[in-house]
C-alpha cells in the first residue's frame, strides 16, 4: 500500500494541508481532485521529499518514504522540467541512472520508453526542439524509465491533445496492470472517472471525499432527484420543504432532498405544475460530486 497519513503543512498563517490521509492499493489508480490551491501539489511534493511536512508521513509497503525509497518512485512534477539542450535519449538514460539503473540498462530503458511513447524518431533531438506535446511525452518517459514501483504524477494530462491523452492513459493502465499504484491529479474529472479505481477530493486542506467512484456515487445517490416538468414556471420547486434546487433549466430540474424528505410530495408538487416528463433518482457524475464536496460550507469562512 501507498499510504498518505495525516499530512499537515502550513506556510506561516496559511494552512495548506490539514490532515490529508488516503491510501492507494498496488495495481490501482487513484485520481486526486481538488480546486486550484487545494493542496494537491503540496501533497505530492511532500511525498517526493521536496517539501517537508509539519506532521504526518507517506509510507510505501509500510516503510516511510525516504531518499532511498523515493528512487523507486516515478515522479512527474506539475512544473514540467527537462534539460532543454540535452538530447531525448541521453536525458532519459540520465534519469534512469539517477534512479539506480546501470549504464547499459539505462540505455535500454531509454530506448524502450522513447519507442513506446512514439519518440523513436526524436531520440537524438534536443528537448527544446520538440513540440510541447512531445516534450510532455518525454516528461512521462522520464517518470517511467526507471521501472518505478510507484507513480506519482501531478497533472499528467494537462496540455495533451485527445490522442496524447489516450496514449498516456494506456501507458498508465499498463503500469496498473503490472501492479504499480498510480496517483495522479487532474482537473479533467471525466478522465478521472473513466480511469480511476478510486478518487480523493481535496478541499481546504483536507480530504472531503475519498473512495471508489461507485461507492461515492452510492453515498450521494438517493439524494439527487431529476424532474423534468416542461410547463412549470421557473422556481416551481423553490418553496418545497426539505428540497434544494441544484439546477433548473427550462423545466429540467435537479433537486437535492434533505434526509427524510418525502419524494412523493415532490412528485405531487411537480404534477400540480402540469405534465411530468421525467422523474427519477439520479447517479451523480463526478463533476457533481466534486462541486458538492468542495462547496464552501455555509457559515464557515476560510481563514
Amino acid at each position: 500500500m501507498l499510504e498518505f497519513e495525516g499530512l499537515h503543512k502550513s506556510y506561516g498563517a496559511n494552512r495548506v494541508l490539514d490532515g490529508v490521509s488516503f491510501a492507494v492499493a498496488p495495481g490501482s489508480m487513484f485520481g486526486f481532485c481538488g480546486s486550484n490551491g487545494a493542496g494537491k501539489t503540496t501533497t505530492m511534493r511532500i511525498a517526493m521529499g521536496l517539501v517537508r511536512a509539519d506532521g504526518g508521513e507517506v509510507r510505501w509497503q509500510g516503510r516511510p518514504l525516504d531518499q532511498a525509497l523515493r528512487r523507486r518512485v516515478g515522479y512527474m512534477p506539475e512544473e514540467r522540467g527537462l534539460y532543454p539542450k540535452m538530447r531525448v535519449g541521453e536525458q532519459l538514460a540520465y534519469f534512469a541512472r539517477l534512479h539506480g539503473l546501470d549504464a547499459a540498462a539505462a540505455a535500454r530503458a531509454a530506448e524502450h520508453w522513447a519507442d513506446r511513447l512514439g519518440l523513436a524518431e526524436r531520440r537524438r533531438s534536443r528537448v527544446e526542439e520538440l513540440s510541447l506535446g512531445n516534450q510532455q511525452r518525454v516528461q512521462l518517459a522520464a517518470a517511467l524509465v526507471s521501472r518505478p514501483e510507484v507513480l506519482i504524477l501531478d497533472e499528467p494530462f494537462s496540455g495533451l491533445d485527445p490522442v496524447g491523452v489516450d496514449a498516456l492513459a494506456e501507458a498508465l493502465l499498463e503500469q496498473v496492470r503490472g501492479g504499480v499504484p498510480v496517483v495522479f491529479s487532474s482537473h479533467q474529472l471525466d478522465l478521472v472517472e473513466r480511469l480511476c479505481d478510486a478518487v480523493g477530493i481535496l478541499a481546504r486542506g483536507s480530504m472531503v471525499a475519498a473512495g471508489p467512484v461507485a461507492e461515492l456515487r452510492r453515498r450521494e445517490s438517493g439524494r439527487l432527484l431529476r424532474v423534468v416538468v416542461p410547463d412549470a414556471p421557473p422556481g416551481w420547486a423553490a418553496g418545497l420543504p426539505g428540497v434544494r434546487v441544484v439546477s433548473e433549466r427550462a423545466g429540467d430540474t435537479l433537486l437535492q432532498l434533505a434526509p427524510g424528505t418525502d419524494d412523493q410530495a415532490v412528485l405531487a408538487a411537480a404534477l400540480r405544475t402540469g405534465r411530468v416528463a421525467h422523474f427519477a433518482w439520479r447517479e451523480p457524475s463526478l463533476v457533481e460530486l466534486f462541486r458538492e464536496a468542495v462547496a464552501e460550507p455555509a457559515g464557515e469562512v476560510a481563514a
Binding site: M48, G49, L50, Q67, R70, R71, V73, Y75, P77, E79, R80, G81, L82, Y83, P84, F95, L98, H99, A142
Partner: peptide
C-alpha cells in the same frame, strides 16, 4: 529556469 531541478531533487540532495 527549466524546473528540471524538481525532478533532480526527487532523487538526490
Amino acid at each position: 529556469a527549466s524546473r528540471v531541478v524538481e525532478l533532480l531533487l526527487a532523487t538526490m540532495r
